[in-house]
Amino acid sequence: MSQLAMVIDLKRCVGCHACAIACRAEWGIPVAYKRNWVHRLGPEKTPHGLSYTFYPGLCNHCDDPKCVSVCPVDPEERTFKDPKTGKTKKMAVHATFKHPFTGAVLIDKSRCIGCGSCVEACPYGARYLNEDLDDPKADKCTFCVERLEVGEQPACVKTCITKARIFGDLSDKSSEVHKIVASGKAVRLTSKEVNIGPNVYYTGLKRDTYLLIQKCAPHERKWENVKAPTRRDVILAAVRRLKTAV
């Protein structure tokens, strides 16, 4: 199975924030929310020396996406197409799902009830509930699959001024992402407590990846505390959707 993935090279990243803004521009994200961000880490002492590095973050499109498993929307059968081969597959999915051919975790906006469960569940804080909308919906990075379909790169990759973001299909052995990940040089933001197979990888100097994992790997199993929305919430959401549809 294919799995879209990204490797961010912290040796190349200068922390310029172009990625964050290009994403915002491309998808018109209101400033209260973010799909893509850059945090500064350090300067701080590490066992490998003083580090000053960055956490360029986005949805990890995890192998075991907890945001998907908490979605309370009843599964519905959908037909998925492999963008590479054209092969199709039928599968029943919640309003948010992991695409069987690309591995991208996506949201079916027309079915999302805006309950916010997935937002709460994500240990990376990669999702938000867009309350700017009359009918609030969950939203997040899509790996720009909409752009990939027409032969474009993800907006953050296309603007990256130092080519620090490497994007591709992990299952494709000739891809650069595969080569880097297979070399074992890349790290992921995981911990003993939270290890759900993130597909965003980071490479860099030892001191920098050390600080990144220290500061940014999640430890809280947030999805375990998500309360399922009550029946009342679900009905209210349905009414809201009806109203906005009318």
């Binding site: 310029c16 924030h17 172009a18 964050a20 803004i21 290009a22 491309e26 296309k158 603007t159 001024i161």
Partner: peptide, 20 residues
């Protein structure tokens, strides 16, 4: 949106946060 001019040998499609 603003992107770098793909014809440009200096920046290609890339612009910084401010350019964006």
């Amino acid at each position: 949106k603003i992107e770098g001019n793909p014809k440009s040998p200096a920046n290609d499609t890339r612009v910084c946060a401010r350019g964006n």
